[in-house]
Every structure is written in C-alpha cells, then in structure tokens.
Design a protein around this nucleic acid. Structure first.
Lengths: 226, 226
DNA sequence: GACAATCCATGAGTGTGCTCATATCTTTTC
DNA sequence: GAAAAGATATGAGCACACTCATGGATTGTC
C-alpha cells in the first residue's frame, strides 16, 4: 500500500520560501473558521454563560460540524483561553509599545497594563463574571483551564517582574522578592472583582482605586526596603 | 390523588428529643454506605488517579448502584472534598485540643497545624499529587472543586488568622494584615509541594524546612512591624 | 400484626465533551 | 488535465458525570 515516490528521487521541493506565507483557499478558510469559532463561542459565553454553552451550539452558530471545533481547539476551555491569551498579549504590547512609558515610574506602567486589560475585557463583562468569578474565583482558581492557563499566568507575571526589576536595581532585591508576582496576582484578581462590581459611571471607582493602590503598593516596595 | 392525612389531626409527633440520635437500621446503613463510598473512592483515587476513576467504579467497589453515589454526594469532586474537610478538621482540632500549645509561641502552633495535616495526608500521597497538583496547582486553583472548597479554605484561613491575632495584640495590626492569610495559603501550598517531592527519609527535609521557615516568617511579622 | 407514611437504593436514561474512521475537498506532481 | 498525495470537515459514536421515576425496604401508628 501507499507507494511512496514511484519515480526516481524526491526532488527537494522549494516549499514556500518564507516561513508561513500560505494564502491558498485552504489557509484562508482555516483562518476564517478559527475566527468564527472564537467569535461564536465568545458571544454564547457572554449571553448564556460558559457552562450552559454546549460545543454543539458553538459549532452550529459557527456553521460547522461539532467535530470541527476540536480540530481547532483541544477543549472547550481552550476556546475561552485563546481569548485571554489575546487579552494579555494586547495589554503587554500596550505597555511595551508606548515610548512615553519608557522611563515612567513603575506605578504608571502597571496602571497602563491593568487599564489596558480592563478596556479589552469591557465588552465581555458578563462572560468574565460567569467564567472567571466562578471558575477563577475570589482568590484562587483557574478552574479546569489547566496548563496552558498556567503558561499564560506565567507569561503575564514574568512581564510584571520584568517591569519591577527594570525600575529597581537588582541589588536591592531580598529574600521576599519572590512574593511580588504572587502578591500582584492576588491584587490583579482583586481589581477584576472590584471592576466587575463597580457600578460607577465608566468604572470611575475602579480607575481611582487602581491609581491609588498602585501608588501605595509601589511606595511600600521601595520605601519598605531601602 | 395523594390523600393527605385521612384522619382527624396531625398529631405533633415528638420526633427525636435530641438533635440527631438516630440508631435505626436505616441510619446505620446510611452511615456505613457513606463510609464505604469515601473509602472506595479514596482507594481508587490513590491507585488510579482522580480523573481516571469513574463514578461507576467507585459504586462497584462500594457494592452499590451508581446512582446511589449521588444520593450521598452531589458531585465526584465532593467525595474528594469530604476527605479534605476531615483533614482540616483533624488538624485544627489537633492544635485546639493540645493544652501545651495554649501559651506557646505562634510558630509552634502553626508548626503543629501543618505537621498534623501532613501526617494525615501521608498515606494518600499519590492522590494528593494527582488531584491537588494538577487540580489545585502550584499557586492557585481549587479546580472544579468550587464553593464548598472555598468554605473549607475560608475555615482554614480563619483559624490561622485566629492564631495570629491570639499571639499579637490587635492594635498592632496595620493595613497589610489582610495579606497574612493569603500569604499563608501560598506558603501552605508551597509546603505541600515541597513535601510531595521530598524524598528524604520520613520527610525530614520538609520538617526542617517547616520549622525554619515558620521561625523566619513569624519573626518577620513581629519584627517588621513594631 | 396490619396498614400507612417515609425513606432511599436502583439502573436505565440523558446530555455532555470529545474521538475517530471516513468522505470530501485542496494542493502537488507528472 | 489527470491522478496521487495530503489536509480537514464530518457526524455517528463513546465514555463519562449526573438525573429521575420506580419499587422495595424501614419506620411509625393503631
């Protein structure tokens, strides 16, 4: 079976010179389907909640067969995760690509980071509430979202650590510096909760809280030690 | 249908004078079945892992029908949780009921607390590794174990807070005291991880680590502020 | 002891997330 | 262009956690 290369030699086929310049019908379709899945899923998560949204419904809304969903995402949670991955990447880029922040104080960078995240999440408040509060929860959890979720969390906290170290000479670090990312993680979840329950116009209270708490926190970091 | 009380009056039946003194055949059986379920589940979790243990297998091993499991526990996770509930209760009692600890220093109380937990968990190391490391995970999560799990975590941390306050006048608390339980939670998870990977005889390394880190931690708490 | 009321074990059934062999479509090769 | 090779959409099917109407057993009442 499977006559492999019936002719003389496997001519090394100059595939695609560049890395991933695929623009065939297939590649286009693939990209389109992937986007449709994420979009459909997000909409359903937002309107019906995460648990009550079935993969069948996601497929139906995206106009594909149920099995196809799993050609693109290993699990249902992965679909949600891909949204958070985009969100985190977006926020990190917002800080990195802002030249004005280059030599700004730490609290300003962190403010921009978290603020970008909230802005990005804003249209999906219900989804965040449904999926995160009950699957990520007050002070722990990422629910069933295991592994890839941790990589994401790690990527996020690594960036935060980077910002902190950039702002304070490495010599000043002491035995407690490992706590900073953990503390920031808890802090971030707290901000999210605050934001979700914030009914002030344009979430002003959250912004104010963010601003103030970051000043206090950074002050503690730099005053407390040296 | 359903002729409700065909006679004259519902004689207020003097139920059981005390709260729950049921010793009939039914109650005995119920207790026995509940214990069989937990025991069977625990054994399977330990030998096969949490995810790969089916509720059908648990029921079969306990000698009951599959549906019966769900007359006793709402979910599969709840079975595992009931084990951790017992574990936490046991450890709290071990500290509370030890008169020698009454006026011992804080680090000694915390040492006893955590040590009791480890002792209790020891026979189920594989299960802890399987269920906790991957469902409760390095620094967050309680996996799908939601709600009841949080109550448990809360109960545990409330006790820790109690111990801390007992050892230091309330006036000395400041704006950061809310962090103590959170930090202790992370610390506790860290200890668990350490313990799981500790291959020294009788987990000596863990004990040593516990002892030392608690001294340092408590010293930081009391020196750091005032 | 007999009847009624209550409890609760039962296991077939349900809907779920996910798998997999197959058919269909696209791309490559000649 | 035709045919082989490769990719991928498909949906019936699977195993699972969990539900529920049923009947049989236990308890309470006279």
């Amino acid at each position: 079976m499977a006559t492999k290369s019936n002719s003389t030699a496997k001519a090394p086929p100059r595939k695609q010179s560049a890395k991933k310049r695929r623009t065939g019908k297939r590649a286009q379709n693939k990209e389109a389907i992937r986007k449709r899945i994420v979009k459909s899923a997000l909409h359903l998560f937002q309107t019906k909640g995460f648990d009550t949204t079935t993969t069948k419904a996601i497929a139906r809304k995206a106009g594909i067969a149920e099995g196809t969903v799993f050609n693109y995402f290993r699990t249902k949670e992965d679909i949600a995760l891909s949204f958070f991955e985009e969100e985190v990447d977006h926020a990190i880029a917002a800080v990195r690509d802002n030249p004005r922040l280059r030599k700004a104080p730490l609290e300003e960078k962190l403010f921009t980071l978290v603020h970008s995240q909230l802005e990005y999440l804003a249209p999906y408040e219900r989804f965040i509430g449904a999926a995160l509060i009950h699957a990520l929860n007050p002070a722990s959890h990422l629910g069933a979202f295991s592994h890839r979720a941790q990589q994401l969390r790690h990527r996020y906290l690594a960036f935060v650590t980077e910002l902190v170290e950039e702002s304070s000479p490495k010599q000043q670090r002491d035995a407690l510096s490992w706590l900073v990312p953990e503390a920031f993680w808890i802090y971030y979840l707290g901000v999210l909760l605050f934001w979700l329950y914030d009914s002030s116009k344009d979430k002003e209270h959250t912004i104010a809280f963010l601003d103030r708490s970051l000043h206090v926190g950074v002050a503690f970091l730099t005053n407390g030690r040296r």
